[in-house]
Design a protein around this nucleic acid. Sequence first.
RNA 1: GCGCCCGUAGCUCAACUGGAUAGAGCAUCGGCCUUCUAAGCCGAUGGUUGUGGGUUCGAGUCCCACCGGGCGUACCA
Length: 607
Amino acid sequence: MNLLTQLRGLFEPVLAPLAPDPAKLADYLGMIRPAANPDHGDYQANFAMPLAKAAGKKPPELAKEVIAALPANEVVESAAVAGPGFINLKLKSDFLAAAVRGIATDPKLGVPPADPPRRFVIDYSSPNVAKPLHVGHLRSTIIGDALTRILRFQGHTVVTDNHLGDWGTQFGMLIYGYRNFLDKAAYEADPVRELARLYVHVRNQFRKGDDEDEGPTDDPVKKACQEETARLHRGEGDNVALWREFMPHCLADLHTVYDRLGILPFDFEHGESFYDPMLSGIVDRLIATGTAVVSQGAVVIPNAAGRVPATPDELAKEEPPALVRKRDGAFTYTTSDLATVDYRVEHFRPDAMLYVVDFRQALHFKTFFAQARRMGYDRVELTHISFGSVLGPDRKPKRTRDGGVEELLPLVSEATAAALAKYEANAAERRSFGHEVPELGDAEKRAIADVIGVGAIKYADLSQNRTSDYVFDADRMTSTEGNTAAYMQYAYARCRSIFREGGVDEARFRTDPPAVVLAEPAERALALQLLRFPEAVDAAAADYLPHLVTGYLWDLAKAYSVFFESCPVLKAPTPELRDSRLLLVDLVGRVIKQALDLLGIRVVERM
RNA sequence: GCGCCCGUAGCUCAACUGGAUAGAGCAUCGGCCUUCUAAGCCGAUGGUUGUGGGUUCGAGUCCCACCGGGCGUACCA
């Protein structure tokens, strides 16, 4: 049940004979869309202009013909030609009322099952373990989690895989730190904490301005760490044993953060170490099939033009080749990525693989996807779900290494504290106006603040187009006004409050729904908005854009606020209207709760 | 140098992928609490969509040039 699909189905038989090219029929039907301006009706159709041009007619005339040819139906109340040839569509209120009543019994609230359902592998979060998680990791995690929930809700199969950075220099640093600076008592008491201290301590031994990258260095400490890393990779000494000892602690630390944020458990956490044993086989295969060649002692895959530019001069002119084995014999991330595709295709048989990684790796994914296709993986959709940088309030990209590392957990605490303060202030203000405000226990208050605070952080991220850069402003996101999680949660709490105050059991509205009456404009607008939920889910899933769900939520919650102000529910003029409004309120609550759940955000019964 | 992305109200962002008078929130100003939660609602102010051309019935959106910013450019991931 999707209003748009239904409308398009109505127009299809009329447009089919008019479309000059049958392949373009879908395009024309796509020009039926929600009205940009509510004054123009509920939906608008914009196909008359291009269609008239192809037919050599005037758009308004063609629009009139289309309207006249429209089959009799129970959906469209009126269709009017306006402006240069727009068709403004108004839907029948009776139809809307019946449709709303129809979704009341649907656990999926009108969202149809995906047809056909697809199998996805989504790769997201992918932090370097043993380093503190900072705000830069937030976006991939939150966006990937939301996409997983959205696609699963549609009925797709989603395998989630956290491609951990668990085989890099940071472990050389930990091993070096363990050997030189370990506080044994502290390690036994709280290994995670001591490892974190060691990492930072070793990092501080590096010369100023030096980073952790591989490559030649004359920094003695960095060199020592690199040597420990190399020994780990070669399986020498007890480095592997130490790595095995550290890993569970690092993972436990990571999962603490995920739990705090309410991130779905990953199906797999196959990190770099998992794929390491497969890398040499991949390179051998690439060479054997002629996909890769040896160049300057390294093994590379030529670029899309089939060339291997190597000199700075050549590299200035064209796309670089992909390095799969370095001169020193070590493998690269490209090798690892190809091994990952290989493994996933064999084990999960996906229709699509999504990589939720920031936009700076766009070139890498472009070339890596091309290489994967050349290796024979040309039947699986490979998509880079790119997102913008996390910027500080100064609009400069937030960086881990620029000193001020912004860790995640303190930030979550800050957000929940702000939510708690807001609750107290709000309760005090309500009391000063003589309202009865229930005195909640500390535990309940903290639970509410937790849901709102975590929701604020996620919503602030998800409500932006993911391709934009993202200014991380703690004050703004924990604000409770406007298009924020708190506004949606508040709307939900108001829905629940009506049932609580009225002592009404909502079960009846979900199993045996009463007739719906749409008398007031606010009721009609709300019903229309409720019926658009499937459109929003479709759109968000089609382009992997969670902000289309928040945009929908914002419209729905606003429509509910207007309804809430103008339409008494418990004291409705007639029992029929009371029942009808109760059904609407119950449905609004369910849709808000479901839509927020698609974003990984929880709700509270009161706030 | 070459390539990718971005530039929309004072600030933060939308604009359903070429549709009607470019919309929200914050901030500012004004109004609404003896009626289901005022974390709310109603209203006002605020724009040459970086600049200049072009394409067409129609451009924030597509093309070209320029200005400004970010990022990337095989042996970091």
